[in-house]
Design a protein around this nucleic acid. Structure first.
Lengths: 346, 346
DNA sequence: TTGTATGCGTTATCAA
DNA sequence: TTGATAACGCATACAA
């Protein structure tokens, strides 16, 4: 008594008058099949609209052809360009014949992580892409959980860790690029609208700001900085605070474009102008940056490339080619500066 | 000879000195188990860190506890608030114990769709959430493909179709709300920056604009409209065109916030001011809208709620409660207007 | 309350 | 080149 709707490999075999093994061979191409029988089998497949059950296939072959992407809140995707990374992941995964599962982390304590990893494991993903921003303690579990019990894992945009496979943007370098440019335009008091405290990306971009100031012979005073939470609203507030502390500010680097939008709002509403009185630069180079008033100078990161690189690395872990290549790898993506009106002295 | 790393139900059974059936009963709770044996089994599960293989479970139970989300390009997610819908989907799906798969459509011709549906089907998803914007021909396949051959399907944000399960925002109503508000502020020449031609959402918002104009006794002339492609850059261009055609414009409704940002850019760069000379309103109420200069009046849609409603409906299709409820349902989400400075006459 | 046996739809091993 | 047959890990009807 059959319960399933769709045709199984048995149905095809019966219809074609061959064994299931032969049908399997026709589909996989792993073993030779006589042209005549192949034709019969293909006709049967067509006639029955047969679609292999990938679950059963995965069960026996121990390969699900599924990759799991682990993210935290979805808002992250929208805000920080994880979406572009996802685009790269999707593209490359599709080329390699993988489907994608999406998993959401609620708590980053080891117990929560373990629960998540267990469900991912239960689904038998072939590999895991860890696409969660690193903030205080969020990645501490990697030292406490035996990763070997789970499928291969590649981490996106976290602090390079020699024990892990990591694909990351050079955030320090990117921020330095932007701030050095502001200094080169003649700015002497360059403020920083930082991201939230504890976030790795915030910290790196702050370091880039600091390094660029020092190299330009300027002092990275704490009063030149204010932190937001990546949102436009927080950018408004941070900028207000900055201008209250240091009214003589002549340039500001914002740790992302969205906060730069808020900062712009505050600057204008306080009667100042960009770029004539204050130069402005952001980070991310979102598609909208060129439509800000004025168009925003920003740091572009090739996140699509980052996503693709992550999948490539994962693929190498799933199907190791070579004993020598088995060392964890840290891949660094170099960002570039896109200069627009917001940082060009009239 | 075992190949798998992780413990199977057999290992647990052996360790606890019971049969696999009993272990299964402990986990599912479908049949009574003596407290003593239950304790032994649970100890064994704990000791072996046993995690059920959901693939095998799905294979035999014909239920994978997986929902598939079908989207087109990822950019869509970022632009049109699909991300918020995804948030709702994710939340509700998680509550119901589903994992999520993400599938990407490349071509919307029937053959491409069929290929996609076949892989979704091969993965044995329990249900499908069709989250692709409706544009010219993109949904034509629903009449040509037998949906009954696939798992239950719920469509997000498409034209209500009495034969399908659809969850949709009232786009006409939302646009009407915004434009009626502009008219109530005294605007007499209200322009429209429309979305790309052929898109259902563009068309609905245009209809809302038109209806509101007529109700206000104004004429919805074609020269009052220009179309963009949802991007900020296209908003800039459309606005330029609009002001060239009709320099006397005193208000503009943009079909999304991103284009409104571009429109704002053009208006300001041409030396006009918002709201004093031109009133402006958008659609989507993105988080950034309140940080535009000036803050943007916009139409808010409860997309999270939309996502949750979609999952609820899907769940009902997967586990039908009642014969009577089996008619296709069209759920309409009502948007609301958020009034900010861009539409308030000083 | 528990154990045994069968099947879910594949792939893979071994003979033929 | 092909056909039986045995897993894969689990759920369930049936027997005990």
């Amino acid at each position: 008594m059959k319960k399933t709707q769709s045709a199984s490999i048995h149905d095809v075999a019966r219809q074609a008058g061959v064994s299931t093994g032969t049908v399997s061979n026709v589909l996989s191409g792993k073993r030779p099949v006589a042209p005549a029988t192949r034709a019969r089998v293909e006709a049967a497949i067509e006639a029955l609209r047969y679609q292999p059950n990938l679950l059963a296939s995965a069960l026996v072959s121990q390969r699900s052809r599924v990759l799991s992407i682990v993210v935290s809140e979805l808002r992250d995707l929208g805000y920080y360009g994880y979406l572009s990374a996802l685009e790269g992941i999707q593209h490359r995964a599709n080329e390699l014949g993988y489907s994608l599962m999406l998993h959401f982390v609620r708590s980053t304590d080891p117990e929560g992580i373990r629960r998540l990893l267990d469900t991912v494991n239960g689904r038998k993903s072939d590999g895991i892409l860890w696409a969660i921003h690193e903030s205080s303690g969020s990645h501490r579990w990697v030292d406490q959980i035996a990763l070997s019990a789970y499928p291969p894992m590649v981490f996106l945009n976290m602090h390079p860790n020699p024990a892990l496979d990591v694909v990351t943007v050079n955030n320090v370098g990117g921020a330095k690029l932007a701030v050095a440019h502001l200094a080169a335009q003649g700015a002497k008091r360059i403020g920083l609208v930082a991201g939230p405290e504890g976030w790795w990306e915030s910290e790196m971009r702050r370091q880039g700001w600091q390094a660029a100031l020092l190299e330009a012979g300027l002092e990275p005073a704490a009063s030149l900085t204010a932190a937001g939470d990546w949102s436009a609203e927080s950018g408004k507030i941070a900028m207000r605070q900055l201008l209250a502390n240091r009214p003589e500010l002549d340039a500001v680097f914002c740790s992302n474009d969205i906060m730069a939008l808020g900062a712009l709002h505050t600057i204008v509403s306080l009667g100042r102008t960009v770029p004539h009185q204050i130069l402005l630069a952001g980070f991310d180079d979102t598609p909208e940056a060129s439509s800000f008033c004025p168009a925003l100078t920003s740091v572009r990161q090739d996140l699509t490339g980052l996503g693709e690189a992550a999948v490539n690395l994962l693929q190498e872990r799933i199907y190791p080619q070579d004993e020598t290549g088995s060392q964890p790898r840290q891949i660094l993506i170099e960002p570039e500066l896109v200069i627009r009106d917001s940082s060009r002295r009239g």
